[in-house]
């Protein structure tokens, strides 16, 4: 846990509720109170109508692999020591896409459409990074 060599998020006031929830092992998305659109990544306004009246809402944390790549060569910190690894876009049941890693699954078993669920990588006190694994 202390030797997490991969990049860490630079958390701002805008994203703090998201990361606080991750620390509780809860994945949040957002819903616009004005137009009802669900969005990810979270931001201060609704991407559809620019209303600032967006609320945090829990995601079930389940979805399917929309697409992925098994990476064999990279310069990315931390990842270059753990080759190969899986980078993916996951489509959540709530209808939005999330970029993440597919972990604890043989990369050869990962496929488009694979059902996945969120899992949290506890990298240090108060900071957990959402990743996905086979559901």
């Amino acid at each position: 846990m202390a030797d997490y060599a991969k990049p860490l998020p630079e958390i701002t006031a805008e994203s703090k509720p998201f990361w606080d929830a991750c620390a509780r092992h809860e994945l949040l998305v957002q819903k616009c109170r004005a137009c009802g659109t669900v969005q990810y990544y979270p931001r201060g306004v609704c991407a559809a109508c620019w209303s600032a009246d967006v609320e945090w809402t829990p995601s079930a944390g389940r979805g399917r692999v929309y697409t992925f790549t098994v990476t064999y060569r990279t310069q990315a910190r931390g990842f270059r020591d753990e080759l190969p690894y899986v980078l993916a876009w996951i489509e959540l049941e709530e209808g939005v896409q999330v970029m993440s890693n597919i972990v604890a699954v043989d990369p050869a078993k990962v496929a488009v459409g694979l059902p996945v669920r969120v899992t949290f990588d506890d990298v240090k006190e108060g900071l957990s990074i959402p990743k996905f694994t086979a559901a």
């Binding site: 990049p7 630079e10 994203s15 990361w19 990544y41 970029m99 890693n101």
Partner: peptide
Amino acid sequence: YLDQFEALYGTSTVG
């Protein structure tokens, strides 16, 4: 701002 939702995951141009 977008880095915290993408760059944590070993994201490269080729990937």
